[in-house]
């Protein structure tokens, strides 16, 4: 038996919205420690790794490990029926073929209950393992989203060049070029506005704008995003949850 109660339905809504355009369905792996997902997009360029730790939930129990195959579009439709501020409880019996979803309005005496049919998904997992990191940038997630959107008007690729004291985002396209430079900044009054850059080795990587557009759909999950970059390796884009994370691993482009 799995049962997890979210204080607010909005959290699961945001998680599903951030994932559903990249992968259509995935397995939710439920253990006593929480719920995790690993899923790769069809083109095998972008990998999503989600961890919702037990502490994220108002109440959580999982007596036995269960894997729930979920169609994210369908889940999104059902979750969309609840108000953001509702309590949201998901539950499933062991060997269940459906996921039970209950919304409780905190003010009105109203409870809405739905069942989502589960899918049998043949998971095709990748061993991500611990990765070395040459450069780490932390910046406001909204700023990163704007950079990606702004640069996308110019090119299908976004080049990220990190040096000791700056990160340069650059796009070169048919209509012209664009550059955005950000530098470390400590904002004591508004720590969420701070920018940090730590560097072991300079970085020059290019990523597909299309995939970055998918990644920034997670912006509402966290005020900050942490970008971990390593030469000739996938970039890691991490949005922290209250307890856990949503991470994207994006394969870089290469020069032909």
């Amino acid at each position: 038996m799995l049962e997890g109660k979210f204080e607010e339905a909005s959290l699961l809504k945001k998680i599903v919205e951030a994932m559903k355009d990249c992968v259509s369905s995935c397995n939710f792996n439920c253990t006593e420690n929480g719920i995790s997902v690993q899923a790769v997009d069809n083109s095998r360029v972008l990998l999503i790794s989600l961890l919702i730790e037990k502490d994220t939930f108002e109440e959580y129990r999982c007596d036995r490990n269960i894997t729930l195959g979920v169609g994210l579009g369908s889940l999104s439709k059902i979750i969309g029926n609840g108000a953001n501020s509702d309590y949201l409880t998901i539950s499933a019996d062991d060997d269940a073929d459906k996921l039970n979803i209950i919304f409780e309005d905190k003010v009105k005496d109203k409870i809405s209950e739905y069942n989502l049919k589960l899918l049998d998904i043949d998971a095709d997992l990748l061993d991500v393992g611990p990765m070395d990191t040459d450069a780490t940038i932390t910046l406001p997630s909204a700023d990163f989203a704007k950079i990606c959107k702004d640069m996308k008007v110019l090119s299908e690729s976004l080049q990220i060049i990190v040096t000791k004291d700056s990160a340069l985002f650059q796009s070169v396209g048919d209509i012209g070029t664009g550059n955005i430079v950000i530098r470390p900044k400590t904002d004591i009054d508004h720590p969420e506005e701070s920018v940090t850059i730590s560097l072991d080795k300079p970085i020059d990587l290019s990523f597909g704008s299309k995939y970055l557009s998918d990644i920034i759909k997670a912006t509402s999950l966290s005020q900050k995003v942490t970008i971990k970059l390593t030469d000739q390796s996938p970039g890691v884009f991490e949005y922290k949850l209250p307890s856990g994370y949503l991470r994207f691993y994006l394969a870089p482009k290469f020069d032909e």
Binding site: S43, R44, L126, D127, G208, S233, A251, K253, F254
Partner: peptide, 14 residues
Amino acid sequence: MSGQQSLNRFFSAR
């Protein structure tokens, strides 16, 4: 010109 790499190049199947 640049091409897109696959994650399979970096991560092995589990």
